[in-house]
Amino acid sequence: MLPPSSAFRDDLLWLLPLGFALIGLYRFGRLLPDAAILAIWLSTTLLIALGHFLRLRIRRRAWLQAYVSPASVLQHWLRGGALALLVRVFLAAALALALVIGALRLHGPEELLLLLTSLPLIAALRWGAGRQLKGHISPYYLPESAWRVTLALTFLILCSALLAQSWWRAGPDFTAVTLDQAAWHMALEEDASSAVLEQALAVAAAMEGVRWWLAQHGLPRLQWPLLELLGWFLVLLANALFVWAWLHCCVGMMLMRKLWDSPCRA
C-alpha cells in the first residue's frame, strides 16, 4: 500500500501530460490534418472508455461480492467484458467528440487555466474522498464511491467557475439580427485545416449562435427575473457536457496509472 501522498503525486504526474495535450490541442488543433484529428479523437475515446470500463468493473465486483456466490459461473460472466467495453466505447466516442470540439472552442486563456486548475483539484479530491470514506464504505465499493464524490464535486466547482466567467464575458449581440444570421455569423468564424474538423466546429458554433439568439430574444420576455436568471444559467452551462467529458478523460488517465501499476487487477 503506497503512502497516500505518494498516490496523490503519482496521479498528478500522470495528469500532467493531459494538461500539455489540452494546451497543444487548443493552440495547434486547427492546423492538424484529418488523420491527426482522427487519432486524437480515437485516443481520447479510448481513454474515456477505459475509465468508464474500469469503474464499471469495480461496481460489478462490488455487486457480485454482495449478491453472487463466489463459486458461481456468474462471477465470470457478469464481471464486465467485451460487450460492456463496446458500449462504453460508443458512449466515450460522443464524449470525446464534445471534448475535442470544446477544447478547440475555449474562450481564451482564462478557461484554459481553469481546466488546468481542475487537474490538481481532481487528484486532491480523489485522495481526500478515498480517505474520508474509508471508514464508512465497503472496501469493494470504496473506489467507486470515491470517484462519484470526486466527480460530482469537481463538476460542480468547475461548472460554477465557468458560469461565473461566462456571465461577465462579452458575447455577440444578436438582438437586431435573425436566427439564421446569428447561426451563420458564428459558423462562418470557424476555420481549420481539416475539413471534417471545420464542419464540426461550424456546427458547434451555429448551435451556440442559436442558443445566444434564443436567449437574447426569448429570455427578456419572461416576467419573472428569477426565471430569466435560470434561463441564462442554462444557456451559459451548455458547455457542461464538455466539462463532464474532460473530467472523465482525467479519470481515465488516473485509472490508467492504476492499471499500469497493477495490471492484474484490471
Binding site: 494546451i23 486547427r30 492546423l31 478547440l104 487555466l113 487537474l119 490538481p120 481549420a192 485545416s193
Partner: peptide, 16 residues
C-alpha cells in the same frame, strides 16, 4: 505545472 501555466497564460489558437 509552472510550464503548463506559462504556456496557457497567453495561449492564442493558431489559425490556418
Amino acid at each position: 505545472f509552472a510550464l503548463l501555466v506559462a504556456l496557457a497564460w497567453d495561449a492564442v489558437p493558431a489559425h490556418p
